[in-house]
Design a protein around this nucleic acid. Structure first.
Length: 278
DNA sequence: CCATATGTTAAAAG
DNA sequence: ACTTTTAACATATG
């Protein structure tokens, strides 16, 4: 479920529950999620250190790490990407579970696994000296873990981009505006659902050429992007967006009652109101 | 078996 | 050469 709001929630979880705990071991044996690092490389780089901060830009997260022992020389940054289905789970020394920035209660890894939390879906695990863990739980296995990730291609974060900057960046291409919103080098953090929600709020068709939008439309788009993002973070994820439940065959626009249209735009399944979004 | 899935990216196409 | 689109990736689920 991860778009910007979910990733921000995961980042907050790490910041709240995983900082300043000495790393005793790392399971980086999933060579697909950890590529191109060979097994053991990430472990060797992290053991003895601790996470000192958790950052995010768009859907990319990275953690700063401490020096080993008394050394003040910081370690590598640990890049984490949730891919299509990743979640960050952090446990206490007692096994108490933190996720999504909130206390979840319950236990993990003591014989009480939920059927939707099979340990085989733990693709990367840090074990702290206190016995707790930080895990990347990822059913579909498209997440990524890497040392010192290259973030230079990322555009400005969707939560922070200014109206002027967004307009300039979108307008550099005649591609459909939705394709531009999904392009992480244009603006970072927008995924398929957040794009549909934003365009519906702004009443702009996803198929409109990006360089054809009027100043008024670009302004609406910027407002909608910030509002949709902020709302999703506050409400617990992009799936809480008003239009998301109406991305379905036969559903009608909750504002005007017109039947929703479906097509592939920007390579992804797209739903919009053909009457209001022009 | 088929289609679909909230992401990224290499390869192909234009 | 640069931009845009498609396919592939690994896996689960209906």
């Amino acid at each position: 479920m991860p778009e910007l709001p979910e990733v921000e929630s995961a980042r907050a979880t790490i910041q709240a529950a995983a900082l300043d705990r000495r790393i005793a071991d790392v399971d980086d044996s999933d060579t697909y999620e950890c590529r191109p690092h060979p097994p053991g490389e990430i472990r060797d780089a992290l053991v003895g250190r601790s996470i000192t901060a958790a950052h995010r830009q768009g859907k990319s997260m990275w953690c700063d790490t401490s020096g080993v022992g008394r050394s003040r020389t910081p370690g590598p940054t640990l890049g984490l990407h949730l891919g299509m289905s990743g979640r960050i789970l952090v446990t206490d020394a007692d096994g108490a579970l933190y996720e999504g920035g909130d206390w979840q209660g319950g236990r993990y890894g003591q014989g009480g696994e939920q059927p939707d939390r099979k340990p085989v879906w733990d693709r990367f695990t840090i074990t702290f000296a206190d016995g707790g863990t930080l895990r990347l739980f990822d059913k579909r296995r498209l997440g990524r873990v890497r040392l010192d990730p290259d973030l230079s291609k990322l555009g400005p974060d969707a939560e922070e981009v200014s109206a002027d900057d967004l307009a300039t960046r979108l307008g550099r291409s005649k591609a459909p505006v939705k394709a531009r919103l999904l392009d992480q080098s244009v603006v970072a953090g927008v995924g398929n659902l957040l794009a549909d929600q934003t365009l519906w709020e702004a009443e702009i068709s996803p198929q409109r050429p990006a360089d054809d939008l009027s100043p008024a439309e670009l302004d609406r788009l910027h407002d909608a992007l910030h509002h949709a993002t902020k709302d999703a973070i506050a409400n617990g994820g992009v799936h809480t967006g008003e239009i998301i439940a109406f991305r379905a065959a036969g559903a009608r626009c909750p504002r005007c009652g017109t039947e929703m249209t479906r097509a592939t735009v920007g390579g992804r399944t797209t739903w919009w109101c053909p009457k209001e979004q022009t």
